[in-house]
């Protein structure tokens, strides 16, 4: 059974006559690393809001079709219930911050789950370390830089150990090195067994970690598959996806040199470049 199953979902925000999502069907299987991308306004954030029931419960609107989380229809489960399975990290951390210290922020969700004090302590220490924010533990979250705030939010969600972690443009406010490290962490969490869904524009940093990619445009899935096959396609380029520069580069020289397989990471791209230029195995 897929952990999230979206079945022919069409959704209209209240008062809108244009659907934000139209005929969406997709499965997220346990262990997946699903990458969702597409132009701004294409419905990416709307789609992930259906994964823990924020849509329709909080947003209202017209909701046709269904979303099943571990087989349960989200229309008949509360957001609180669904959040135990699906944790969402949104793009603007400031809107998610509730408390006046980083430690309190992380403890908040755990206390709501009714966990014993000792467990809360242990989990907090672990996520502070995992996200490399031990030094921030006593700081006031709203006084931190947005990148640091985002890490705090992520820590507070990971601490609750949901099965699916959904990240809606998590690195939007991070500097490149932090983004790189953060996405490595997401990859690591995926390897440790978390199912991961990431909405991202920085495909050059994340595509290599994903086993599935979906491109949305105008609320519809225009293409889905493996990143290596999808990103070099013309359709990706046509709908405004920020295709990694190296893929664009190899597409441009593909009539001059044979590209046997499009690369999906910097390392592979470098190998492909050496191959094309005849800097072979001797290197």
């Amino acid at each position: 059974m897929p952990i999230i199953e979206v079945d022919n979902l069409t959704y209209y925000y209240p008062g809108s006559s244009k659907p934000a999502l139209a005929n969406i069907s997709l499965n997220v299987e346990k262990g997946d690393f699903l990458l969702i991308t597409g132009p701004s306004g294409s419905g990416k954030s709307t789609l992930v809001r259906t994964f823990n029931g924020l849509i329709p419960h909080l947003f209202g609107g017209r909701f046709e079709g269904k979303v099943l989380v571990k087989g349960k229809d989200t229309r008949y489960c509360s957001v609180a219930e669904l959040s135990k399975t699906v944790g969402i990290v949104f793009q603007d951390p400031e809107n998610q911050i509730l408390t006046l210290s980083v430690e309190r922020e992380i403890a908040f969700g755990l206390e709501n789950l009714g966990l014993p004090r000792k467990v809360i302590r242990e989990r907090m220490e672990k996520v502070l370390k995992d996200l490399n924010i031990v030094h921030l533990r006593e700081r006031i979250p709203i006084e931190l830089s947005v990148g640091e705030q985002q890490k705090v939010i992520v820590a507070s969600i990971i601490a609750m150990m949901p099965e699916v972690l959904v990240f809606d443009e998590p690195t939007a406010h991070m500097d490149p090195l932090s983004a790189l490290k953060f996405l490595e962490l997401v990859h690591e969490l995926n390897k440790r067994g978390y199912t991961v869904v990431v909405v991202e524009h920085r495909l050059d940093l994340v595509a290599k970690y994903a086993n599935k990619i979906i491109i949305l445009n105008n609320g519809r899935i225009v293409v889905k598959g493996e990143p290596r096959n999808i990103l070099p396609s013309d359709i990706a380029e046509e709908c405004g996806v920020d295709v990694p520069r190296y893929i664009r580069f190899f597409k441009r020289i593909s009539n001059l040199a044979k590209i046997s397989r499009y690369p999906i990471s910097d390392e592979e791209a470098a190998e492909t470049l050496k191959e094309v230029l005849g800097y072979g195995r001797s290197y």
Partner: peptide
């Protein structure tokens, strides 16, 4: 500066050409 290289310089660096 905790910067990472832009994509094209990154490719060049990895290729060591």
């Amino acid at each position: 500066a905790s910067l990472i290289l832009p994509q094209i310089p990154r490719l060049v660096k990895y290729s060591e050409i």
